[in-house]
Design a protein around this nucleic acid. Sequence first.
DNA 1: GTAGTGTTACTCGGATAAATATTGTCCGAGTGACATCGG
DNA 2: CCGATGTCACTCGGACAATATTTATCCGAGTAACACTAC
Lengths: 172, 172
Amino acid sequence: MKMGEGVEAAIHCAAMLAGVDGNSTMSGAAMAEAFGLSPSYLLKHLNQLTTARILESVPGPAGGYRLARPGERITLLDIVLAVEGREPAFRCGEIRQRGPVRLDASAYVKPCGINAAMLKAERAYRAALAEVKVSDIVANYAAEGDPRSIAASCAFVERHQRPQKSASTKQI
Amino acid sequence: MKMGEGVEAAIHCAAMLAGVDGNSTMSGAAMAEAFGLSPSYLLKHLNQLTTARILESVPGPAGGYRLARPGERITLLDIVLAVEGREPAFRCGEIRQRGPVRLDASAYVKPCGINAAMLKAERAYRAALAEVKVSDIVANYAAEGDPRSIAASCAFVERHQRPQKSASTKQI
DNA sequence: GTAGTGTTACTCGGATAAATATTGTCCGAGTGACATCGG
DNA sequence: CCGATGTCACTCGGACAATATTTATCCGAGTAACACTAC
């Protein structure tokens, strides 16, 4: 049971995008630089988030990504499911009925108890993830993070965010 | 996040071994036949369970595997950790400090909030698995399973279990 | 009939290939910004 | 000076390799049962 490395990148990107103003965007290349990741590969994961309607992408110069909805309405579960897929980690192959003795199909109508137990555990896992919002991550970071790190992050966002024309925040 | 297929096989085997008498054993080949699996590959997972002290292996003719302790003291978590490894699914790569801005190491003493949230969810997952014992699986199967399936399973166990010499159950 | 002994067949265990999923890279389609040109 | 227009650079998106992990297979070491022989 190993989770893909892209999940960590996706959550960090979402948290960073939560810090940009209004509907400004940030390019995938900038975020890849911020975390020392391969730009081309990060786009793959960002694209998964876009497909899942968690991010919005703006093409062209001064384009990039932004959150599709406020950080209060994006949970870690949303991101994990978008990147890792929606199907549960444990997949019951029904090996109980793959043996040499072929019973009638009516003998297997009851669900497999093992599968039920595993799925119940996974529901607990998902419930815990669903309780954490991106805004919580940001708030916790702002409250408990190191001041130097916070300053560096804010400076990075200020430097790399690209304001959009329509309904954007006023520029000087 | 995808769980290996061997976990399902391992749990089914543990449940089946919980049904053998006393210290009798059952060969890996028999269990592979029962579930329609590749015998050579199933041995790999059974070996992992043996290394984790969940099963005991007896070599030689009439040898095989048996539970190392009663089914009441074996949880699904034990089996999952033995097969999938003990480290958590989410591994924090500390990408927050891999960017171009090299802050002092003292800025990263606080643990990563994202990692904390993910680990908390995984603790919930493991706690749910730790509450289910192999004996629960067997009891639930005996109570709710289809009678024909139960009869077939018992017959299979009776036919394939191999009594051991020392301190074994009395034979006719 | 009984004890000792050699063979044998069966078991698990680890080392070795094939298949699959993940990770990483590259190039193309599309779009808005910018400079240039004309009025 | 202002507007229209063509070029361009920058963006994302999907198609294409390299690597790591998982899955599957094979062969060898070890052991207890079994048959045989001698007493």
